[in-house]
Design a protein around this nucleic acid. Sequence first.
DNA 1: TGATTTCATGCACACGTTTGTCAACGGGAT
DNA 2: ATCCCGTTGACAAACGTGTGCATGAAATCA
Lengths: 352, 352
Amino acid sequence: MDRVKKTKIKATPRMSRVTIIDVAEQAGVHWSTVSRALNPAKRHLISPEMIERISACVKRLGYRQNAMASALRTQKTRTIGVIVSNLGDPIHPPIVRAIEDRLGEIGYVVFVGNTDNDSMREAALIDRFISQGVDGLIVATFKLKDPLVDKCLLAGVPTVAVFRDPERPEIPSVRVDDAEAMARAVRHLVELGHRKIAHVGGPQNLSTGRNRYRGFRKACKTAFGADSEVIAKFGKAFTVDEGHSACGELLDQHRAITAIVAGNDMLAIGCLSAINHRGIKCPGDISLIGMNDMLFMDAVYPPLTTMHTPSRELGLQAANLLIDMIDGKKIEKGRHILASNLIIRSSASKPN
Amino acid sequence: MDRVKKTKIKATPRMSRVTIIDVAEQAGVHWSTVSRALNPAKRHLISPEMIERISACVKRLGYRQNAMASALRTQKTRTIGVIVSNLGDPIHPPIVRAIEDRLGEIGYVVFVGNTDNDSMREAALIDRFISQGVDGLIVATFKLKDPLVDKCLLAGVPTVAVFRDPERPEIPSVRVDDAEAMARAVRHLVELGHRKIAHVGGPQNLSTGRNRYRGFRKACKTAFGADSEVIAKFGKAFTVDEGHSACGELLDQHRAITAIVAGNDMLAIGCLSAINHRGIKCPGDISLIGMNDMLFMDAVYPPLTTMHTPSRELGLQAANLLIDMIDGKKIEKGRHILASNLIIRSSASKPN
DNA sequence: TGATTTCATGCACACGTTTGTCAACGGGAT
DNA sequence: ATCCCGTTGACAAACGTGTGCATGAAATCA
C-alpha cells in the first residue's frame, strides 16, 4: 500500500510485475523479511514457519526476483560473457555448451558474442559485456599478446582465455597442447614412412596457428635433420576456403610431398577438396591429418585421421577456473594445457 | 563530493567503477546533464559544446554506463534470451549466430541456454531469463502446444518461436515448410524411379518431427495411392544414434525398400552408418535423402542429397520479428514459413 | 521475579540511473 | 522597462533489492 500511495495518481496501471513488496504485503510482513527468507545465505535468520508462509505467497503470486535490482545492490549479476570468433565454426559450440552447462548448474546465465576475429568488434563486445556487469569473461578470441586483455584487467573483471592463449601472465588460459599435437601428427606420418611432409597452417598471430606450426617445424627438424627444408603454407584464417587455396599452392609448388598436416580440420577439409579437385587420391597419393576432430570428421571421405581436441573439457575447465576466480579463491594463473590425442582413421596411410 | 561525504567513512576504497557522477564532477555540471548528453533521445536538450565537454570527460575517465542501474530505471535491459535444445547440434549455431548478429548491431546482447529437450530445464531457463529481465525471448525448443508458452505470455515478454513451432496462435513463429520439404524429397525419389520409400523420422510431439512425417505420408499417398502402405520408424530424438537404430529396424523388417527419407541430417548420418554396417551400398542398394543441409554434408560419403534449411535466414527473421514486437509495432502474429530446397548430391540415385 | 541473552523482524539507506518539473537566464518584441 | 518565451541546467523521486543496525519479544538464568 505504501507504493500505491506514493504513485502520483492511481493512474499507474500496475504495469510492473510482482515485487518483493507485494509478497511481503500478502504475507503480512516487512519485505526485508521476505528478502532474507528468499536468500539462502540469510535464511537461517528467519523462522521456518515464516519461510513456509512466505514461500507460499511467492508461489501464489508467481514472484520472480528482479535480477537487475539485486545486481545493482550486490554488484553481482550472476552473469558471464563468452566471446568466440564464430559460433558457426564447429569447434566453438561444444566449448560454449560446456561452459553453459557448468555455469548454469550454479545459477549463472551466459551471454555469447561473435567477433569474426575483428578487433574492433571484439573490443565493443567486451565493453558491452562489462557494461552489462558480467561477473566474468571467457574469451576464445585473444590474439597473441592481445592488448584487449588490458581492458578486462582494467575493469577488474575476472577473465580466462580458452582455446587461444594470449600468453599474457596476468590471466590464466586453458588450451590444448597445440605444438605437441602437431608433432604427434608428424611422428605418425614418419612412422608410416613419409619423408616429404608439408604443413597447411593458420594465422601466425594466433597461439593456435603459431604453436601448431612450431610443433610441426620442430618435429620435422627432429625427424629429418636440423637443416632439412620445412614446407608450409599459411591460410589467412582457419577456414575451408583458405585450406583449399593454400593446399592448391602447395601441391603446385612441391610435387614431391606425400603428406600434409593441416592446422585444423577446417583447413583439412579444404585440403581434401583441393586434392580431389586435382584428381589425386587421399590417402593413396597423399596422406592428410587434421586437428580438432570436429563433429562428422569420421563421416567425411576419407574418414579423417586427426588430433582430437577435448573441447568439452576445455570449456569445463575454463568455467571452473572462472568460478574460482569469481569466488576469490587463489588459482593457478598459468597455462592449463590439455593433451590432444591421435585419432587414426583413413586419411593417412603408408606412402606408395 | 556528494558521494564521498555520504559514505560512512572514507574507508570505502573506491571499489566501485566510475559513475555518471564522477564524469559530472569532472565536467563541472550536474549529473542529470551528463545523463541527457549521453542519451541519444534526449541529447537535443543539451548544447553541442556541453556534449563535447562531457564526451571528453567520459573518454578520459573511461566511463561505462551501468546497465543494471539503467535497466532498473527504464525497465529495459537491451538483452534477449535464446533457447536451444543443444548448441552441439549443428542446426542451431547458425541460427543463434544470425540472431546475435542482427540484435548485436542495434545494441542488444544475447543470452543462450540449452535445454536438452528437458521441460524442467526449459522452464527453469525461461524463469531465469525473465528474472534477468530480458526484453524478449527467441525459443527453438517449444513442443507442440507447449504450455511453457504461457509462462512467457504471462510474464509479458515478447516471444517468438523459431525452427520448432508450438502452433499456438498467441505467438509468432518462423520455421521452414517441413511438410513440403519432405514431400519434395519423396517426389525426387519417385522421379528417380523409387517405389518403396521409407521414412526415418523424429519425435512426433515436435512440429518438425510431425510435419515432416505428415509431408512424407501425404506425398507417398499421392504418388502410390491412398491405400498404399506408409513405412516409417521414429527415433526418440533427432540424433545419429537414433537414426542408426531406427534405420536398422527398418532394414530388417522391410527388405524391399529402395530409398529412405530421413527427418533430418543427423538421422540421415545414422542411417548411413546403419547401411554401411550391414554391408549394403548407398546409393547403389538404397538411396537416402536428409534434411537441413548441415555443414559438411557435402563432404560425407556419399555426399548427402538433402533439403536445405536456410538457418541463417530463420534466425534473422526471428530476430527482426522480435525487434518489431519489442518496439511495439504491429506484426504478423502468424506462421512465417520459409522454403526449403532440394540439394542434389550423390546419396540418392536411380534404383537398380 | 528481574536481569540478560537470544532470536526474529522492522527500519532506512544505498546501489547508479532516468526523467518530469522547475528555476534561471538571456534575448526579442512591445 | 516589462513581459514572454525558449534554452539550459539543477533537483529529486523513483526503479527493486540487500543488509547493518535497532527494536521488541521470548527465553534463559540467577
